[in-house]
Amino acid sequence: MAILGGLVLTVLVLLTVVSVTGRALNGVMHLGWVESLAGPLAQGLLDAGLGPITGDFELVEAGIAFTIFAFLPLAQISGSHATVDIFTSFLPISANRVLMALWEVLFAAALIVIAWRLYEGMQGKMRYNETTFLLQFPVWWAFAASFAAAVMAALVSSFTAAARVWEMLTGASVLPEFGEVDH
């Protein structure tokens, strides 16, 4: 899932770079001296659609939402969310295990609610036929992609919650600690 998100992120990077390049070249082709020097060529390139990618903005928005949802499962399973453990470090290990299990269960609940509500949001977008501005593709397509990733996040989070509860009950170590990540 994270790899899929990474691929989409890469595509967005490339798309943006192509769009910026197209926009810059489009500007160059319209410069007076370029037009007089290479008139037909410049015009030909422009007619062929040399310019920014139409709707690059909307594609980045739709793509980045999917990317974030697709990154969530990895963050759940690797315990990547930021925490403050300075105060709990004075508590016994068993107390820490109880807290971690509790928070992980809550996290799973939150992600399940988020996925469910995202589904409702998608239904609204379908019902009202909302589209994007320039490309005019249905907004619910973007919601659907994000929803699929959000379901994965909810599933993975339910699994990690179960694992934390198991750790709490048996004292075994299954998953990494919370909060070992940079930003």
């Binding site: 009202y128 036929n129 909302e130 589209t131 994007t132 501005f133 005019q136 249905p138």
Partner: peptide, 8 residues
């Protein structure tokens, strides 16, 4: 206009 398609 913020929600194209919704208030056609």
């Amino acid at each position: 206009g913020y929600t194209p398609g919704r208030f056609p």
